[in-house]
Design a protein around this nucleic acid. Sequence first.
DNA 1: CTGAAAGCGCTAACAC
DNA 2: GTGTTAGCGCTTTCAG
Lengths: 353, 353
Amino acid sequence: MTSTSRRLPGNRATILDVAAAAGVSRQTVTRAMNDMPGIRQETRERVQELARELGYTPSRFAKGLVQGSRTSVGLSIPDLTNPYYPAFASSVVELATQRGWHVVMDDYGHGGATGVQSVEHLAPQVDAVIGYLGDAEGEAQAVLGRRPLVVLDQMTGSAWGRIRFDYDHAARRALDYLLAAGRRQLVYLDAGKNGLPSGPQLTTGRSADPVDRAVSTRGQAFARAAAAAEIPLTIIMSPESAAGARRATQSVLTDRPGIDAIIAFNDLMAAGALKGVADSGRTVPMDCAVMGMDGIPLGELLSPELTTLSLDLREVGRAAVELLDGLLSGAITPGGQGSELVLCHRLIVRQSA
Amino acid sequence: MTSTSRRLPGNRATILDVAAAAGVSRQTVTRAMNDMPGIRQETRERVQELARELGYTPSRFAKGLVQGSRTSVGLSIPDLTNPYYPAFASSVVELATQRGWHVVMDDYGHGGATGVQSVEHLAPQVDAVIGYLGDAEGEAQAVLGRRPLVVLDQMTGSAWGRIRFDYDHAARRALDYLLAAGRRQLVYLDAGKNGLPSGPQLTTGRSADPVDRAVSTRGQAFARAAAAAEIPLTIIMSPESAAGARRATQSVLTDRPGIDAIIAFNDLMAAGALKGVADSGRTVPMDCAVMGMDGIPLGELLSPELTTLSLDLREVGRAAVELLDGLLSGAITPGGQGSELVLCHRLIVRQSA
DNA sequence: CTGAAAGCGCTAACAC
DNA sequence: GTGTTAGCGCTTTCAG
């Protein structure tokens, strides 16, 4: 039996085991392990060697308890599979790391979990949460108690920090551009549950009639903008995926051959729409323009390259981290100055529109 | 001064503060907070109310110390910006969550950090690490001591668990396919530092001459396969990005107009190569085939859709998590049965080759 | 139903 | 240089 196989997996060695093995006090072990002064080099090395043999690893809990550890922030994300989120996460992780924070990631979309459940999962482990929680029914801030929560793209709820996007601005920019380019038969390809192949269609415009509840916040902004511009806008629903968008696009193009512009809920769906338009034998942008929303790098790789309402995800990540930083330090108070930010999309014209 | 503003941000309320405020013992507070039996409903509610007002949150360190918390695993990733990694991470997070594990994510690519540094960063916070560490010079397993490390795509080092990819197999499959399709002038577009616009080129094949050190593991596998098939293969280097690959492709196509197939280091670079070929006025796949490697969803969104050596990232994630699970439970021992897995790529023929 | 005591593993402060 | 003491905030065990 070697010294390394002495203990069972669950039975981790403690500082006392090392101290006993080395015939020193636990304090000496601490000094050796943390490269602290006031210990003879020889002792230090002997203790470190023993620690390694015993497989000793300081308990992060005991250490955290006595030292107060680095702050760790939870990052709650609905779907890492949509390139939007990793791009955002990448930025958050980078900036958090710069501040010495740890990031605990939760991708909650898989098991059909909700944003609030994700926060509940993260809560015991973190000092704060940044997240895209969806339109949470539950109260995520309450779960966190006194620890700050920064939510993105959410209107309701009582999160301490909030980052919103000005979809009305984006919709106006998009419509202005498309209209100026002579587009007249516009479709908004929305993300939603009831996305049957020939799903529900809903036309608005030339009036300020309230839009169907199923329509997303983004879709509603476009409906408002269309109404204001007095042009009709057909809203169709599809699952939030490229494949879903492709099918929905094929189907709407069959139903309404005159369509000359499609605005998609996000870039991923726009990529699907691009395919769908091509499937129908049409050319983008000549026969039909396609516009995305998000500004993820993917857009530049498509052919034709995607015209999109871009968000600069590095800036969004920076905004979230800085807002959280302010909340954590007390420089920003919940509901106070700077606790709510509104970011605007920028229209990036490439080839697809 | 309200009761909620009583304490400073750093000065978190402890269980004793709540107990004092409620006029009960700390044990009663514990019972109230954790929904344990043996407490009157009225007392429970009163304590919970007070706790909320004081912004009391149980210290995760104290709790972990006494209870031994959920295992938390570090996920070390070089670059969330390459869609390959989030696809992998997504799978790992999902499966880890199913097991009740937490995932601490570290995207170490930004600040020019190395994989070993990433592990050092993660180490105080986690019970194990899964990671793409690159070809680490340092010894990451040593940093973790007795806690398991599972590395992917790494030949050297003494990680307890290892998942490798059979690049020789992949290279043979690719070359067989391309050769059968009549391709004769092949280029391997490798990822590497010295990727000048008209960077170093290196031709191999018809002999088993050892390949330049700068060439990646993947590139070397292709060089071996080309030598075995006795066909020449030109290896060029480019930065590991779509933009870099695009430039490198343009430049090699100018230098060597006869090229009829490009195999890229990964799908992201293949996307760039697609653009580069188009830039040069050629058509894919007629004039020049393009083949990627990874099998990320992006490939299906490109035009033409990318033919690629695909890996099924959900399976890779599953393999990593299951290997770690075995290591954690002792079912798999370092260096023993099942501690090293080799996964094979599958050729997915779409449109680009 | 509630309280008091003990101790998780570690480090800070002070002895020796 | 090294050891001793105290205590971080919580839950477990055992008394009341």
